[in-house]
């Protein structure tokens, strides 16, 4: 693999389960040392894509290379070069921390002279010093998660696939986990990490937004914020929210309107309503407006705007 060849390359990668298309002609190119966040709602096809890239599922169409090896025809070579953390916690609960590490070290054939040092590294990385002989099922979520990462990196893989590694882990542990991911990236490890936490997307070098099996946008967080919205974003405090969203959806100049918490986020394009017109326009529909203010768009705004579909489906967890 030459230095500038992509670590992960997917071309028209497609997975069909009977009549359902889980991943639909996805193109992706990830450079060495990049952290790419895979963002999308549940069922968007994130896990299926990652499983195809790991050689766990066969692509129905298209192709993918990981570390320069084809995932369909050279799956075993791919496996030598990757670390994988599945969405579901998948270590042995009845084994201790040390026993799990030794098991995965053996499965990956980490050299005998290296294994002790690698285990020590994984234990300190996961903050599990003093808990080496605890049964894994007795550990709290954050520790389990970091231990799973430790097991996945014992053999020093140049590429890491992390499938929703932080789901169900408390915020403090999540932040710590992201620090670790950045440390690996600084050492040149390429990381594809999926999440449905929008705030975590900001930690990535680039973000790939995926919805219903299709890649709908890819770029750095600031690129996405700057270019994808198609207008200026305003936050509107009003009631009732549902009626307001409905009224604005068909109004001239409104690119998008969506509910965010107890407020409305409205994207206004050129040649139609502007921010000053909003209270009056909504008043005509019997809606009371407290406040209209310009806000910088978050990735969540971008995502909601990019995902086509009915407004009810736009709620992102």
């Amino acid at each position: 693999m030459s230095a500038d060849a992509p670590a992960i390359l997917a071309q028209a990668l497609t997975k069909k389960f009977q009549s359902f298309t889980a991943v639909d002609h996805l193109d992706l190119s990830i450079a060495k040392g990049e952290i790419v966040g895979f963002i999308g709602p549940n069922g968007a096809g994130k896990s299926t894509t990652i499983r195809m890239l790991c050689g766990l599922l066969r692509p129905s169409e298209g192709s993918a290379q990981v570390a320069g090896f084809d995932v369909s025809s050279e799956a075993e070579a791919v496996r030598e070069h990757i670390g994988y953390m599945s969405q579901k916690f998948s270590l042995y609960g009845d084994l201790t921390v040390r026993e799990n590490l030794r098991f995965f070290g053996g499965i990956y054939r980490v050299a005998r002279r290296e294994i002790d040092e690698r285990m020590k590294f994984a234990i300190s990385m996961a903050g599990l010093e003093g808990r080496e002989d605890r049964l894994v099922r007795t550990l709290a979520g954050g520790w389990k998660q970091r231990l799973a990462l430790g097991c996945a990196i014992l053999h020093r893989p140049p590429i890491l696939f992390l499938d929703e590694p932080t789901s169900g882990v408390e915020p403090e542990a999540r932040r710590r986990f992201w620090d670790l991911i950045h440390e690996f990236a600084a050492d040149g490890v390429t990381i594809l990490v999926s999440t449905h936490y929008m705030d975590e997307a900001e930690y990535c070098n680039r973000i790939a937004l995926i919805d219903r099996g299709k890649l709908i946008a890819i770029g750095t967080p600031s690129e996405l914020r700057a270019h994808q919205l198609g207008g200026e974003l305003f936050e509107v405090g009003c009631a009732p929210l549902g009626a307001a969203m409905k009224a604005l959806s068909d109004a001239p100049g409104v690119v998008d309107a969506a509910i965010f918490g107890d407020r409305l986020h409205v994207v206004l394009g050129a040649g139609g309503l502007d921010a000053a017109d909003l209270p009056g326009f909504l008043g005509e529909h019997g809606i009371e407006v407290d406040q209209v203010r310009s806000v910088p768009p978050s990735l969540e705004d971008v995502f909601v705007q990019l995902v086509s579909g009915s407004p009810e489906e736009r709620m992102i967890p």
Binding site: Y84, K88, I107
Partner: peptide, 13 residues
Amino acid sequence: EVGTLEQIMVSPI
């Protein structure tokens, strides 16, 4: 079912 098989399958075993 537990998911450990997936973790093993992704290894070069």
